[in-house]
Amino acid sequence: MPSDSFARLLLTSDTHVPTRARSLPAPLLRALDEADVVFHAGDWVDTATLDLFEARARWLVAVHGNNDGQELRERLPEVARAELAGLRFAVVHETGPARGREQRCRSRFPDTDVLVFGHSHIPWDSRAPGGPRLLNPGSPTDRRRQPFATYLTARADDGHLTELRLHRLPPRS
């Protein structure tokens, strides 16, 4: 469990195991073990990956995605929320098209400081004027048209998000 004033965070989404990768990348698993709080924005695809995250994460804040079947939908909500280190977080899989995203998310999540989302597999970092910071960690297993597979780490520190880092993963062999 994180302290009241800070927490080390792992943000990931769209793991798609075993459809897009046979297993999770080792750097992601190390980050999972080091984090105080893990955010996963859906598209797990299999329950074994969720089981692995639940077993290894100190605190998991997670949702289901559009590629997740009934069993995952029964275990995970569409939207998850957490308050830690003075920040209000929300997690959702889809936020719609990039155009207008900030305004939609400001309206949908007015009481949120940081919104973690997925679906596109494209890393994203923006702020909705008068609304939440929007973060998409990309995908650690399926880069689609991106140059790298990715995930994010950060630190929630006394009401601030600090040390935000996009991790680029080496190509799978």
Rank of each mutant, 00 (worst) to 15 (best):
R104A: 10
F109C: 07
R106W: 02
D111C: 09
G118F: 03
A98C: 10
E102L: 05
D113W: 10
F109N: 08
G96H: 00
A90N: 05
R104Y: 10
G100S: 15
V92M: 08
G96P: 04
P97K: 07
D113F: 13
R108N: 01
D113N: 14
T95G: 15
L115P: 02
S107A: 15
R108D: 06
R101F: 07
E94W: 12
P97H: 05
T112Y: 00
F117L: 08
R104G: 11
E102N: 03
G96S: 00
L115H: 03
F89C: 05
R99Y: 12
V114Y: 01
P110V: 01
F109W: 05
G118N: 05
R106Y: 03
R106F: 05
Q103V: 13
P110T: 06
D111T: 12
D113C: 15
H93C: 00
G118R: 00
H119F: 11
V92S: 04
H93T: 00
V92G: 02
D113R: 11
R104Q: 14
G96Q: 02
R108F: 01
G100W: 12
E102G: 04
R108E: 07
C105S: 11
C105I: 09
H93L: 00
H119L: 09
H93R: 03
S120Q: 04
R101K: 06
F117A: 07
L115E: 01
V92W: 07
Q103C: 09
H119M: 11
F109P: 06
H93M: 03
F117S: 03
V114W: 00
Q103R: 15
R99E: 15
D113E: 14
H119P: 11
F117G: 03
G96N: 02
H119K: 10
H93P: 01
E102C: 00
H119W: 10
R101V: 08
T95P: 12
R101E: 12
R101Y: 06
R104D: 14
S107F: 11
R108S: 02
H119D: 15
R101Q: 08
S120H: 04
F89P: 08
F117P: 00
R101S: 07
P97Q: 06
D111A: 10
E102P: 02
D113G: 11
V91K: 02
P110E: 08
R99Q: 14
